[in-house]
């Protein structure tokens, strides 16, 4: 996902000009950078930051949708949702693995998430109030994520690009799953249609915020674009998302909560209203409706899992010792 991953990234770097120029030449030639290759410290730090926050977003993202696994309205929906939330966990895992190639451990990244030092996508700090939210998240949030993730498949850092290819391949069902839920609701009873419209009203603006601050306010965009960690600007991706999504909503008879939303023939895209950036920054900084609960849930899982992880390690040591002893006895 998430251009928001760059918020707070320190892109400055201290290597000499010749080193930086040689590195830039490799990037410009579309060469992939691999883990052991020489790279500017700023590049490494930016990647750790972005991949880590991307991974955290997947993991925290399991919670709002996980909230409805036990209450899914049919067995078919239940299986699809469980598989989808499981996928998010898998994507988090692929991404942590990609970040680990840069010399940071999953445990360190987890601690940064829990301490609040590392951020995750602001969208997951909104609550899932009704079943329709599961449709809206799949359709809008995964739709926005895909917009961001497809260009990341060509990211200059090899392990990140490879993880994204796998993620994109798996994620192709997520958005369809969400849209199908919305479509059923929009074509269902009056009550169901109301659920769908209410969910769209609540998730539309936060979805647009997922692309991160406007290009004019984004501090790290330029350097990340130069290093091809990012391949489109926040505003470009946001526009692509709006242009793709509005006709989908209209097709199922839902309306968007933006009076300024209208087709602009000249630019060949939609104009849309101003995003409430105060709300965005409030949620990023911890003031969203669910920030505390999300981190508390992750903290609880981490703390309550500690004895399991310790037991696994302790048993592994015993196994190894027993194997050694058996080998010695045999010799």
């Amino acid at each position: 996902m998430y251009s928001q991953g760059l918020i707070g990234a320190k892109t400055e770097t201290t290597e000499d000009e010749a080193f930086l120029a040689a590195f830039q030449a490799r990037i410009d030639a579309e060469e992939k950078i691999e883990p052991n290759d020489p790279m500017p410290e700023g590049y490494r730090r930016t990647l750790i930051r972005q991949i880590g926050q991307h991974a955290h977003s997947e993991i925290v993202g399991m919670l709002p949708e996980g909230n409805w696994i036990t209450r899914a309205p049919s067995l078919r929906r239940k299986a699809a949702l469980l598989a989808k939330v499981q996928d998010e966990g898998g994507h988090g895992l692929y991404l942590y693995s990609a970040a680990e190639t840069l010399g940071v451990s999953r445990e360190e990244m987890t601690e940064e998430l829990l301490s609040g030092k590392a951020k995750y996508s602001s969208i997951f700090n909104y609550p899932t109030l009704t079943w329709a939210d599961i449709g809206a998240i799949g359709w809008l949030v995964d739709g926005a994520a895909i917009m961001n993730q497809i260009p990341l498949c060509r990211c200059s850092y090899g392990p990140y690009a490879r993880a994204m290819i796998r993620v994109c391949k798996e994620e192709s069902f997520h958005q369809r799953q969400g849209y199908e839920i919305m479509m059923h609701l929009a074509r269902g009873t009056a009550e169901q249609k109301e659920l769908a419209q209410d969910a769209l009203n609540r998730w539309w603006w936060p979805s647009l915020m997922m692309f991160g601050p406007s290009d004019t306010d984004s501090q790290h965009g330029d350097q990340s674009m130069k290093w091809k960690i990012k391949r489109f600007t926040n505003d470009e991706l946001r526009q692509k998302f709006v242009d793709a999504t509005v006709p989908q909503g209209e097709f199922i008879g839902l309306s968007f909560p933006d009076p300024d939303l209208k087709w602009n023939e000249d630019k060949g895209g939609y104009d849309f209203g101003a995003i409430d950036w105060d709300e965005f920054w409030r949620v990023v900084k911890g003031g969203g409706p669910m920030n505390r609960e999300r981190i508390a849930a992750r903290q609880k899982a981490w703390d309550e899992g500690a004895w399991v992880r310790e037991a696994a390690l302790a048993h592994a040591r015993k196994r190894k010792a027993r194997r050694e002893a058996a080998r010695m006895a045999a010799e």
Binding site: M62, T70, L82, A83, Q86, G89, G90, A297, E304, G305
Partner: peptide, 22 residues
């Protein structure tokens, strides 16, 4: 089993338990 999803002791188990639940 699906109640565990997102709350497992380690990420690998967050994939293993839903596999069994599915």
């Amino acid at each position: 089993l699906s109640e565990w999803c997102g709350h497992a002791p380690m990420l690998e188990e967050d994939l293993a338990m839903p596999n069994m639940a599915l």
